[in-house]
Nucleic acid binder design. Structure first.
Lengths: 215, 215
DNA sequence: TGATATGTGTACCAGTCAGTAAATAATACG
DNA sequence: CGTATTATTTACTGACTGGTACACATATCA
């Protein structure tokens, strides 16, 4: 007997991991590919600058299909942000695992340069471009993006504080200040990228920034 | 005989500088005050995030009055940007007159900190928040803003090159790189301000950044 | 062969967008 | 006074916004 995932009692609405057959008409588009398309659009035009028509046209699907698969515009955006964090923006978390504070900062900056200078991606950073300034209708999305940027700063700060305890960051240095500085540089590079800065130019900004590193 | 400005042959549509009486119903609102209100709105919500209804409601005028006084939404935005450049964003140009390259950079950063950390203003920078990411409808405004940021960078670069010729910047330093670095820091601080950074926090970012300054 | 479950396509909803036509009100000038 | 000029008010336009109702298509399962 074939025990496919569909026979297992899964929480309501939860899709099985195995691509087991399920009743009903099969989806005619690739969800992951559609998410990728949506990410690139939101990345380029921001949350409010991207209309549902923009999205469905680019994804090649109809409006009800989008709603059935992703909820609504806001939920789709959040799924896109999540995907961004574990995809193109991966370096923001992986950099934290570097052995020393300096290497963490360098990895963070190098990762930003590689992402922002990549001509295959929209110019800029989704976390900055997504909903920096917008109407009051999107205030919640805007605040969430700000909260995520703050969270990245906090994680960085905690990593630097640990480094200080471990002795690879001078006691005189302020972990919070350093974290904020790295954030300022990477986010500033995101704006520069939107103005057309090249990878080499961004790289030199990063190099210059690291000259401010203590010790 | 009274030679008021209105008797002088002015180009069509050109308003006289003197507030001389003119035929027709007098305007019931203060144009400068309305511009100030519009600036604060665009500053906070960006170009696309601010609707004409937002504008007219805040200005306390009707839609046709706005069109009669400012042209249309895009022209109003450009007037606002101009006002911003000679008002709150004044430091971007005035800093260039400092005697040395280092003082120019310091003034630029200090000016940004003062502006971005001022609780009386929207958090952020109009040149960054105004139209960073938007729909294709506003691509022209978006490009103009990017061009203005690039222009600021170029002016800074030229100032640093002059400083190098004058001997107050090491020959090994690259004026273009330094200009781009200062831009990255100030624009990064604009994003930080949008995330809620205080004036003191921004100030420490600026202090840290200046530690990268050559010699 | 149903019966059930899911996805797609069309066509629509109310609300908002930027922009404007036309009537009226308020001023200066002669 | 009348005329010319400008501003305000109301009401509107067509296009677009995010979101959905409903008929139909396509799959599994009994």
């Amino acid at each position: 007997m074939d025990i496919s995932a569909s026979t297992i009692n899964l929480p309501k609405g939860m899709k099985s991991l195995k691509t087991s057959p399920s009743p009903g008409r099969p989806r005619a588009f690739d969800v992951e590919q559609a998410l990728e398309t949506a990410m690139n659009l939101f990345w380029k035009q921001g949350y409010e600058g991207t209309s549902l028509t923009d999205l469905t046209d680019a994804m090649g699907i109809n409006r009800p299909s989008l709603y059935a698969a992703f909820g609504n515009k806001e939920e789709l955006f959040r799924k896109v942000v999540k995907r961004y964090g574990s995809g193109p923006g991966r370096h923001a978390t992986t950099s934290l695992t570097e052995p020393t504070a300096r290497q963490v900062a360098e990895a963070m900056i190098r990762g930003s340069v590689n992402l922002l200078g990549d001509p295959d991606h929209p110019r800029g950073c989704l976390m900055v471009h997504g909903a920096l300034a917008c109407s009051e209708d999107s205030a919640e999305v805007q605040q969430d993006m700000a909260a995520m940027r703050c969270s990245a700063e906090t994680q960085l700060c905690e990593r630097f504080a640990r480094a200080q305890a471990e002795g690879d960051l001078p006691a005189a240095a302020d972990p919070a200040d350093l974290a904020r500085f790295v954030q300022a540089v990477t986010q500033g590079m995101a704006v520069l990228a939107a103005s057309g800065a090249t990878k080499e130019e961004l790289s030199r900004v990063g190099e210059l920034a690291m000259r401010a590193w203590p010790e």
